[in-house]
Amino acid sequence: MTLLGPADVRQLAERLGIRPTKQLGQNFVHDPNTVRRIVRAAELAPDDVVLEVGPGLGSLTLALLEAGNAVCAVEIDPPLAAALPETVRQYCPEQAGRLTVIAGDALRVDLGGVKPTALVANLPYNVAVPVVLHLLASVPSLRRGLVMVQKEVADRLTAGPGSRVYGVPSVKLAWYATARQAGKVPASVFWPVPNVESGLVGFETHEAVDADRAKTFAVIDAAFAQRRKTLRAALAGWAGGPVQAERALRAAGVDPGLRGEQLTVEDFTRIASQRGPANPPG
């Protein structure tokens, strides 16, 4: 089986009239070794059904099919979505039946009867965090994932309490899954070459937290909206005042003098159980 190299990627783009756009965050991987490394890092089981967001010209798609997994690819760019099945038939005809392509926005798309168990994707940097959190919330069949994102975003998603970059993405991902750093990806393997480095984030989902997600996420948002303030001050608006915030924090066993970046997701769930309205999860 042949994967897409630099010449293949450029020829495909030229034939389709595709010019990568910053608006859609399009940077196409053109190195076969890189996409195979991504598939290995995903640690897929033979029966995993893979959800790929933003397949683009199909570099990663072909590597996933080469590994023997069924792939449901969601592509927002109509010409790319229309061309992907033909690309697979050309480069990987024996696996073409394992591919399902859905044209649409991953933040809104209906997967129909497909129940993917793994998310593997080269995500557009500007929507990476919202896409990951939305899919984990809306696709309960997901068990694991491996996403390529901007290195800075990878650091945030995998940070633990006390880290300088620990924040809202870190805690909200921890609600759903245990995350890990899975390697770096150089800018040179993309066309066009981005001006940032990329990182791989792997995750394994865990049992649902026994708490109200909307209330917990509201507390997380409030705590990090003013991250330099103590929790007593940062949660005053959420609780109805600093006195009420301190009361809720002490009831949850949390020091009111701490800051949000020092708390685990379990700490936030205990705080949220004390009081506060439910806001839509983000």
Rank of each mutant, 00 (worst) to 15 (best):
D8W: 13
R37A: 15
G241L: 09
A118K: 03
E246T: 13
G58P: 02
R227Y: 02
Q181M: 13
D31H: 12
E246I: 08
A211Y: 06
P20D: 08
D212G: 08
D221V: 12
P161A: 01
N195E: 15
L173P: 05
A252D: 12
K151H: 14
A63G: 06
G260F: 03
S273M: 05
R232G: 13
H134L: 00
L119S: 00
Q226H: 14
Y176S: 02
P116K: 06
L24K: 13
V243Q: 15
P46A: 14
H206A: 07
A41Y: 07
D48V: 08
N33D: 14
V171L: 09
D105T: 09
K184I: 09
I18Y: 10
A214G: 12
W238V: 05
T264R: 13
V254M: 04
R164S: 00
C72E: 10
G112L: 03
K172C: 11
Q150P: 07
F203Q: 05
T87R: 09
D155E: 15
Q274E: 06
L84S: 02
R259S: 05
N126Q: 12
A239D: 11
I220V: 15
A245V: 10
V35C: 08
V50N: 07
S59M: 09
G145E: 03
D48H: 10
R164N: 00
G160N: 03
D210H: 09
V131G: 00
D221W: 12
M1N: 08
A137D: 01
A81G: 08
R270Q: 13
H206V: 03
G104M: 02
E66M: 08
L4M: 11
R19E: 11
L84D: 02
V171M: 09
V243D: 15
S170L: 06
L157D: 01
L62P: 10
P55T: 03
L133E: 01
P280K: 07
E266H: 14
P20V: 05
P140E: 02
D110S: 04
E43T: 13
K184N: 14
S59P: 09
T178Y: 14
Q11A: 15
A182S: 09
P124H: 02
E266C: 10
W238G: 05
E52K: 02
P161N: 01
H206I: 03
P124L: 04
P6S: 15
N27Y: 09
T205A: 03
A67Y: 09
G276I: 07
Q23I: 10
V265H: 03
V53W: 00
A96S: 15
